[in-house]
Design a protein around this nucleic acid. Structure first.
Ligand SMILES: [Mn+2]
Ligand SMILES: [Mn+2]
Ligand SMILES: [Mn+2]
Ligand SMILES: [Mn+2]
Lengths: 150, 150
DNA sequence: AGCAAATTATAGCCATTGCTATAATAACTC
DNA sequence: GAGTTATTATAGCAATGGCTATAATTTGCT
């Protein structure tokens, strides 16, 4: 079935293992993006109003409160936040670290898109998804671009 | 609890509805990215070797064959592919259209990252995730950048 | 203190995306 | 054409990320 000779046109298809690695990495990023958005949002809420309540998190994410409650349990189990019952939620040291890293990366991505001439509204939406798939090397390239343009 | 006056520092936090809209859009993109990757990969396999078998799809995605089998059923139910039992899978007109759109966007994103000076290996991985969160406006900005830089 | 309102917790449901183990079927070879 | 091999199908399980409805608890007010 597979021709033993004649390498064939080989159109766009890359090596199979390489291909697989890209998909694996992307699936991994996908599993962590929600967590990153949560800790980043919690940090923002605490910075802005002194506390992060489930209702506010739910409203800003556009999901129902029980969805947030369940996710917060997971974040607590993973040691990223601390919950005091019927009080707001707080970041552990690990959580604060991840939040800061995420916030900064998010900011770079959004600024970069704006610097490319994309409208701020679109840049905001796109950055919310793109940020989680930007490697350190790409992030640094974005930073370089921002520094060099002007 | 909420101060009726004094707008407060307002640090980084954007309007709540705007924030929500970004997250909603991102969640929507997340639900379609797997589908886009599948049809794109199927089109590539057909172009490269004349057929797309479950085993090849599974190997390139880095997942198990039953995972692919289940997803192919969904794609067939949504009218994107046609399955002939124990034969390869084929794209419907709708599937081929989505594949072509995805393939082209993917290519632009990857080329753009390379043009920024990112190494081809990293660009490949990052593009695999980023592509699904790039709006038409952002895609056009990437195209402009590619056109202008020589 | 007591009551109403806001907030959080819990229960139970569903869809998606993955897995392993195994059965069924088609394709290939001799 | 019979048997081996490759491929696909199916069953059953788990984790994730949603939802609604409702209970429990705290907070704020009088
Ligand atoms: Mn973010
Ligand atoms: Mn995000
Ligand atoms: Mn793609
Ligand atoms: Mn992709």
């Amino acid at each position: 079935m597979k021709p033993t000779k004649a390498p064939a046109p080989e159109s766009t298809l890359v090596d199979a293992d390489t291909h697989m690695e890209s998909f694996r990495q992307t699936r991994h990023n996908r599993r962590t993006e929600l967590i990153e958005d949560y800790v980043e949002l919690i940090a923002d809420l605490i910075a802005d109003r002194g506390e992060a309540r489930q209702v506010d998190i739910a409203q800003r994410l556009g999901v129902a409160q029980p969805t947030v409650a369940k996710m917060l349990k997971r974040l607590a189990a993973e040691g990223l936040i601390q919950q005091r019952p019927y009080r707001g939620v707080f970041l552990t040291e690990a959580g604060a670290g991840l939040a800061e890293k995420s916030r900064e990366r998010h900011q770079v991505v959004e600024s970069f898109l704006c610097a490319l001439g994309i409208s701020p509204e679109i840049a905001r939406v796109d950055a919310e998804g793109i940020e989680h798939h930007v490697s350190l090397e790409t992030l640094n390239a974005f930073r370089d671009f921002l520094r060099k343009r002007e």
